[in-house]
Amino acid sequence: MLIKISKSNQLNENSVTDENIYHSRRKAIKQMGFMGAGALLASSFSNQAQAGFFDDEPETFKTTKLNFTSDNNKELIKTPEKKIISHNNFYEFGTNKTDPQEKAQQFNTNPWQLTLSGECDNPHTLDYDDLTKAFPLEERIYRMRCVEAWSMVIPWIGFPLASLIKKAAPNSKAKYVAFETLYDPKQMPGQASRRVGGGVKYPYVEGLRIDEAMNPLTLMSVGLYGKTLPPQNGAPIRLVVPWKYGFKSIKSIVGIKFLTHQPPTTWNILAPKEYGFYANVNPEVSHPRWSQASERRITTGGLFARNRIATLPFNGYGEEVASLYKNLNLKNHF
């Protein structure tokens, strides 16, 4: 699939990938710890400081290579893989951006069951192997816009959610699709402790209107950068809705249900004035605490990277999705 990218979304050439100079933040903070004073003056209560400066890196989760058709889009500068897998909002593993990578490496994704149910003629369950084998896999290089006003460019591997939905054959009463993340406090420290999990009510739930779910852009992702997903990015299977803020793209999904009514969604329950059901990327509707008119695109280049760019309506995917919202006031339905 070819996705058109407008000129304003391209970055200049200062953002060349150089992974050699990149180290994980954890390591950086560790080294800072050796300076002694750093620990006194900053992050004295943060998790990094508690992590202990001398313990070994835990063994990393094993990912495997996938077979897929490539996305030949060369216009977007991709975010380096190391950044994509070390800067995550996945509160099930803690609220710091680096927590998921630190705490999710032992996460067990096999066996896994993804169950489709509700208003459909063919409710069924996918097992771990089905996730990567039931449908042909394709690469999609998408922009990912976080509601916190930063963004990345990520080469996802996956299949259209539409393929999965067609197989389940929803009936005419199915107007919405609800998604649910695994609930397993033993594996997910954020679910076991309110403090670690940022006060969110678990399991994490999300939802789409069925026409949004059927849009060809909507992806069920099982991998990135050519390999299966690491846990911090939502292994073994997650949703990717590139024209909506990142929190809509729910991770580690175990349930998909077809409904007659709009399902509750996690961030909307937590702060209804700040996060709506639709959550379409919209530069004109500010978050109460920050502007959404522009974003910082995370690529490489360190502190001096001039990476603030204008945010586009529907994250630049308006051509494909704006028609879904012809009759909707996007200011009220943010």
């Binding site: 994980s24 950086a28 190391k82 800067h87």
Partner: peptide
């Protein structure tokens, strides 16, 4: 400055 401070 050397991009050694994590992703962001």
């Amino acid at each position: 400055f050397n991009d050694q401070l994590g992703a962001d």
